[in-house]
């Protein structure tokens, strides 16, 4: 009974309280997305935009082999990053929740993982350059150890360095939600499973992984959308070799082909939405979050 709203003619209060957020979100999230949608159906000659309906932008998009290559590369990056961040995030959270005994240490170590989140992504990205370059620390190290005589070239300005940077930037988006899910697991359940004779591996696969799935799904949504929306890492860390969907779109914008860019944007939003709903199909996050 206590959860019910209080009286006093306050029916209007939540509307007043939420009005700033609602107005803002509609005006600056809802309408801009609608604007993109409208723009994607308008015509352009590369100089000015004509507000006349056309499907030309989409036709161009879908008939170009480049589109498919871009999406292939971007989704490939997203999936590799997803797998790597999930494994790292799960392992680290598992260590923090089930092997670090005091709550104080758990929180302190989690904080260590999350602090970089509050610092500049650009800086964190370029910090790999002196490490991975031809003259970088890693190449010097393996050469001085005699493991190779020539510096390894694939380390920097390659797909490898792009994915490595993604993992570096986005793993903490996995750790925090998985940690949260795992911390909610009642230790008695694990004791009970052990009493029932379950091995460590069985406990992991039948209890911990299923009960962490909300966190994994939440982290997956973050990682997938961040990678799919990136252009800067792909551009800088690939040394201009690998193009992502957004970096191609950025080129169109720089060349003032706004309607084409908008069509690409809408397609990307649809693809991201499909990926997210695929994740949501596995786990109903909203009902799990309410717990």
């Amino acid at each position: 009974m206590s959860g019910r709203s209080s009286g006093g003619g306050t029916r209007l209060v939540p509307y007043l309280q939420v009005a700033p957020l609602a107005l803002f979100t509609i005006a600056f999230v809802g309408i801009p997305i609608m604007t993109l949608l409208a723009l994607s159906f308008w015509q352009t000659d590369g100089i000015s935009i004509y507000r006349e309906f056309t499907l030309e932008n989409y036709r161009e998009l879908f008939t170009s082999g480049l589109t498919y290559r871009l999406f292939y590369t971007t989704i490939k990056f997203a999936l590799i990053t997803l797998v790597a961040t999930t494994i790292i995030g799960f392992t680290c959270s598992y260590f923090l929740v089930f092997h670090v005994r005091s709550l104080k240490w758990q929180i302190a170590l989690l904080l260590v993982c999350t602090i970089p989140f509050w610092t500049s992504n650009v800086i964190r990205m370029i910090s790999w350059i002196p490490f991975l370059g031809r003259e970088g620390l890693f190449n010097r190290a393996i050469m001085s150890m005699g493991l190779t005589s020539e510096p390894l070239d694939f380390l920097l300005y390659s797909q490898f360095s792009v994915v490595l940077t993604y993992i570096h930037l986005y793993t903490l988006f996995m750790i925090v939600p998985i940690f949260n899910s795992m911390a909610k697991i009642n230790p008695n359940i694990i004791e009970a499973a052990r009493d029932a004779g379950a091995s460590g591996w069985q406990i992991l696969t039948t209890i911990i992984i299923p009960l962490s799935r909300t966190g994994i799904a939440l982290g997956a949504i973050f990682v997938v959308t961040l990678v799919m929306g990136d252009f800067f890492v792909a551009r800088v860390m690939s040394g201009g070799q690998a193009a992502s969907v957004v970096s191609a779109m950025k080129n169109q914008i720089d060349n003032l082909f706004y309607p084409q860019a908008a069509a690409m944007a809408i397609l990307l939003i649809v693809v991201v939405a499909l990926l997210v709903s695929a994740i949501l199909r596995v786990v109903d996050i909203r009902s799990e979050l309410a717990k």
Partner: peptide, 8 residues
Amino acid sequence: RMIAGHEQ
């Protein structure tokens, strides 16, 4: 709660 005025 109605007597207290927390519900109408």
